[in-house]
Amino acid sequence: MKLSEILSHDAIISQLCSDTRDGAIQELLEVLLAADQLSSQGYRQILQALLEREANGSTGFGKGVAVPHCQHRAVKKTALAIGRSTKGLDFNALDKAPVYSVLLLLSPANDHDRHLQAMELVFGNLQRPGFRNALRQASSPKAVLELIAGTEGSEAN
């Protein structure tokens, strides 16, 4: 699995309109719905599951990034959406710092192992300060895709 396989151009928001956690999650879920990554019937349930997850424990893992995530049967295949906030969002993050990059990850309900692989992929990049900084500065979907292609080396298409 590669990031470029689960992230499409349409699923990158270079400037989130919303300045709240819930609003940002909803915006990102809407672009995945528009990109046909989930069924419209599942949309409400997934949104609710994502927000409940945040209420039970923030996915703001610190250092300006948050990774809301959910496994759900309405999800067709593992899909990532990335949103950037220049102002910073209050995710009640572990380090209490504002979140500038939100990576929303959805996986089908049945495959826990593949979900963990996707998380590994996301965090493998996020734990590098260089990647986090570049993501925070990437001001267009193209810049995000180029950053990811760069991390994947010459194999990336």
């Binding site: 192992d113 963990l116 965090f123 996020l126 734990q127």
Partner: peptide, 13 residues
């Protein structure tokens, strides 16, 4: 002690 690092383990059942 680092959540970011622990999340990269992808430790399945």
């Amino acid at each position: 002690k680092s959540i970011m690092q622990v999340m990269t383990l992808a430790a399945t059942q």
